[in-house]
C-alpha cells in the first residue's frame, strides 16, 4: 500500500518537472510572439533602420545573418564531411585517429565567446581580415564544425556495410565506392546535420561580437570584407546601446520573434527529417 503511494507521488513529481519545463519554454515563446507580432510589418522586414534605430526595419540584419550563416556552412561543410569520411571510411584505428576524435569532442565543448576571441586573434588581427563577414563566417564555421562532423559520421555509419562490400566486390575502388555508393546514401543524413547547424549559427552572438558585427549600417553589406548587422547581435545592441530604450525594445521584440521563428522552424525541419530518415532505415 505504501509502495503505491510512493509511486504515485514520484510519478507526480516527474510529471511536474516536465510541465514546469514546458511551461517556462512556452512562456518565453508566448511572450516574444505576443509582443513581437505588432512590431512586424512589411516595412520592418524590408527596410533598413531609420532615425538612430528608433524606426524603420531590420532588413540589413536579416541579410547579414543570412550571409554569415551561408559563409559558415560553406566553410564547415566540406571540411566536416571530409573529416567524417576520413574517420569513418579510411581511418586505421590508430593513435592519431583517437587524437582527432578527442579534439573534435573538445572543440564541441569550447565556449562560444572563446571562439570569438580566437576569431579576433586569428582572422581579424593575424590574417588582417578586419571585422568582416569573412572573419565572422570563418569563426562560426569552426564553431559548427564538430556538429557537422558528428552528423555526417552518423549518416555514414547508417549506410549498410554490405553496400560497401558489394561495390568493392564489383571491382570498384575505395574512392569510387565512397563517391557513388556511400555518399549518395548518406546525403539525407548529412543534410539534416547541415540544417541543424544553420539553426545554431543563425542564433550565435558571442562569436560575432568582435569579428563581424556592427550595430548600425545604413545599407546592406557590400562585400565579404565589410562588417555587417546580424539579427542576434541586433537584439543585444538594441537593449544595451542607443538612446531611446522604449522604442528600441519594440524593435528588439520584432527581431527576437524573427530569430525565434527562423531557428525553431529550421531545427524542426531538421529533426523531423531525421526522424523520418531514421525510421526508414529500421525496416
Amino acid at each position: 500500500m505504501r509502495k503505491d503511494i510512493t509511486q504515485k507521488l514520484g510519478f507526480a513529481i516527474l510529471t511536474l518537472c516536465l510541465l514546469i519545463t514546458l511551461f517556462f519554454l512556452g512562456a518565453i515563446i508566448f511572450f516574444i510572439a505576443i509582443r513581437g507580432i505588432p512590431a512586424i510589418s512589411w516595412e520592418f522586414l524590408t527596410q533598413p533602420p531609420r532615425r538612430a534605430m528608433t524606426e524603420g526595419g531590420v532588413a540589413p540584419a536579416i541579410v547579414g545573418t543570412f550571409y554569415l550563416t551561408l559563409g559558415a556552412i560553406a566553410f564547415a561543410l566540406p571540411l566536416g564531411v571530409a573529416s567524417a569520411i576520413y574517420l569513418n571510411e579510411y581511418s586505421p584505428r590508430s593513435f592519431v585517429v583517437n587524437i582527432i576524435r578527442m579534439s573534435i569532442n573538445n572543440l564541441a565543448g569550447v565556449p562560444s565567446v572563446v571562439f570569438g576571441l580566437f576569431g579576433l586573434a586569428l582572422f581579424v588581427k593575424f590574417f588582417n581580415f578586419g571585422v568582416s563577414i569573412l572573419s565572422g563566417s570563418l569563426t562560426l564555421g569552426i564553431l559548427i564544425l564538430p556538429l557537422i562532423i558528428s552528423a555526417s559520421q552518423e549518416a555514414l555509419m547508417a549506410v549498410p556495410q554490405s553496400h560497401r562490400e558489394a561495390s568493392l566486390a564489383l571491382g570498384a575502388t575505395h574512392w569510387q565506392t565512397i563517391k557513388n555508393i556511400v555518399l549518395p546514401e548518406a546525403l539525407p543524413g548529412i543534410l539534416t546535420g547541415v540544417i541543424l547547424s544553420i539553426g545554431r549559427v543563425a542564433g550565435e552572438t558571442a562569436p560575432i561580437l568582435f569579428t563581424a558585427a556592427a550595430f548600425y549600417m545604413r545599407g546592406f553589406p557590400r562585400s565579404l570584407m565589410s562588417e555587417t548587422m546580424a539579427l542576434p547581435y541586433h537584439i543585444y545592441a538594441l537593449m544595451t546601446e542607443g538612446t531611446r530604450p522604449d522604442k528600441q525594445t519594440t524593435i528588439a521584440y520584432g527581431c527576437a520573434l524573427i530569430l525565434l521563428v527562423l531557428v525553431l522552424c529550421v531545427s524542426a525541419i531538421a529533426i523531423i527529417l531525421r526522424q523520418k530518415h531514421r525510421s526508414s532505415y529500421v525496416q
Binding site: 519554454l25 542564433g203 552572438t205 527576437a256 529550421v266
Partner: peptide, 9 residues
Amino acid sequence: SIPSVVYGF
C-alpha cells in the same frame, strides 16, 4: 535550439 540571446532578451 532557442538562441541564448533570446533567453537574455
